[in-house]
């Protein structure tokens, strides 16, 4: 899927990322650009997801506040936002499909925390999948 020209704002930013099992991975909160030294146009090398990517796009005091708290709550276990290389993208549809599961991508610390400390402790949390 590399090498094609797309409208970044229209086809990538703010889209939902889903894994091969159809589970939500996150949103494309920001992207990482590579600027070639030979002066050719910059291209996207990775999608960034999570509050530490969203914060800078919100900008201002609110944005800094989001980044600060997300960093504080993560207790240093993850530095910077979740990063998914463009080579993992398998389809640009309404959602962006990637070839690794959300566990393999390791961008799911907050979901895991919500499960481990709150939701997963309540009776019936792992009820049969319907």
């Amino acid at each position: 899927m590399s090498g094609r020209t797309r409208d970044l704002g229209l086809h990538l930013l703010d889209r939902q990322i889903v894994d091969p099992d159809g589970h939500a991975v996150g949103r494309v909160d920001d992207v990482e650009l590579m600027v070639p030294e030979d002066g050719s146009p910059p291209y996207v090398i990775a999608m960034l997801t999570g509050p530490q990517a969203l914060g800078p796009r919100l900008g201002g005091l609110l944005g800094r506040w989001v980044v600060f708290w997300s960093h504080a709550l993560s207790r240093g276990s993850e530095a910077g936002p979740g990063r998914i290389g463009m080579e993992l993208v398998t389809d640009f549809g309404t959602d962006i499909s990637v070839s690794r599961t959300r566990l393999e991508l390791g961008v799911h610390a907050n979901e895991d925390r919500a499960r481990d400390y709150l939701v997963g402790r309540l009776p019936g949390a792992r009820g049969a999948e319907r």
Partner: peptide
């Protein structure tokens, strides 16, 4: 909230699979 942030959501999933969604409900 879940759709804004791109979290997994829905009652069709067991709560442990949509933990942040269920945390918002609670």
């Amino acid at each position: 909230v879940a759709q804004y942030f791109g979290w997994s959501w829905g009652k069709f999933l067991p709560p442990a699979r949509a933990a942040r969604f269920h945390a918002v409900l609670l």
